[in-house]
Nucleic acid binder design. Structure first.
Lengths: 205, 205
DNA sequence: TGTACATCAGTGAACGCGCGTTCACTGATGTAC
DNA sequence: TGTACATCAGTGAACGCGCGTTCACTGATGTAC
């Protein structure tokens, strides 16, 4: 990768990677600029060639995270194909896959105490990601008889809450310690039961 | 309360209260011993008359929290009265009420990165609290035909995940920002739909 | 192809700060007589 | 009731540390001629 010589070559990326590792390991508050710099084999002062400061680095990571997150979910949703239900379920799996594969991003996005309006760029990226979840829920809920249909925003809040709860409690080194079941199974069965409650799945599927 | 004079009177309690306030405000990593001491109008060194150190204070708070939490949920569960279903729902409401009324405790318990086995006392308190959730779920799930009954541990994991997700995403100053609905409503409707999916509530209740 | 030079990424020393923790101490409190 | 004394909760100064950030600098790189 060419860290030979005086110039690093790709310090910006190296700092982001180091920060991601640290954030995933010790949480967003435990992360320090100095340690990220050390990981990238560089003086702390060098960080300021690429970022305005500590906060700016975290924001950058959150922005990147929301963009990957939105892309992943959009890809999984695939514009509602082959069916609203299948697309919805794929989106849920993408949520969990993202949390699992990009733990540092996930933490920066949802646990750093960052305001999603910290910068316009961040606000835009976050809005795009959350819109995918809401669209998937809204489209699916059109299949529910209007009389017993919950508001789409409520539907998507339920699904998001269960997904987030499973990630926080069972997909990390979290407090409960050992997960009683694989998080993927928990999410699939949990959402399945929920959808059955809405009449979107047959009662004994 | 008698902070007159040289001796504080009830410094231990005052420190815990200050720490709770700080933890709820800035998260467990943002909390510092020195600031808690200042809040209690005392020198940082005075803390060491009552706690072995920073970690010990957090553990103490988590233990207290799990004990209040377990008591609240046991009271709400009321040994399964008047029915397994009603008791289960009351327990869920107690979960949310606890998170709302004791935010500092909740954060210390579930977001401080503390191992629940940090001390035997903590392990015991946590186990008692989690056992209430599991018992409520197990008793309720006896009403499901054995063939389509999920394992009780999975049932309670779902419910816990949705409760925790709602707390984290919508009941705090959290990322989503404004909650789309009151958290209490979200939990009630979400769990309601889930229970309907299990056949524990009539399809159109 | 070779040389002069502008650019700018990273250095290294320094700053002020607040942290957790220790230590010898002091003086208010409560008990024994 | 009054005095002597032991207890021990809180003080205040000090420590070493790592933090985020600044600054003048240096020297590798790449371009212009």
């Amino acid at each position: 990768m060419g860290k030979r010589g005086y110039h690093h070559g790709n310090l910006r990326e190296a700092l982001i990677e180091a920060a991601l590792k640290l954030i995933a390991q010790k949480g967003p508050q435990g992360f320090t600029l100095s340690e990220a710099a050390k990981d990238a084999e560089v003086t702390p002062a060098a960080v300021y060639r690429h970022f305005a400061g500590r906060e700016d680095l975290i924001v950058e990571i959150a922005v990147q995270g929301f963009e990957i997150f939105a892309d992943l979910m959009e890809f999984a949703y695939d514009d509602g194909r082959p069916s609203a239900l299948a697309a919805f379920e794929a989106t849920g799996r993408a949520y969990l896959a993202f949390a699992r594969r990009y733990p540092g991003h996930y933490v920066a996005m949802f646990e750093s105490g960052l305001s999603l309006n910290a910068t316009p760029e961040l606000a835009r990226a976050a809005a795009r990601a959350l819109a995918v979840i809401e669209k998937a829920a809204a489209r699916l809920s059109e299949h529910i008889p209007a009389a017993k249909r919950p508001p789409p925003a409520m539907f998507s809040a339920h699904v998001w809450a269960m997904s987030h709860g499973i990630v926080e409690l069972f997909a990390r080194g979290a407090p409960g310690g050992r997960a009683p079941f694989p998080p993927e199974d928990l999410l699939e069965t949990g959402i399945g039961i929920y959808l059955r409650g809405l009449g979107l799945l047959p009662p004994d599927a």
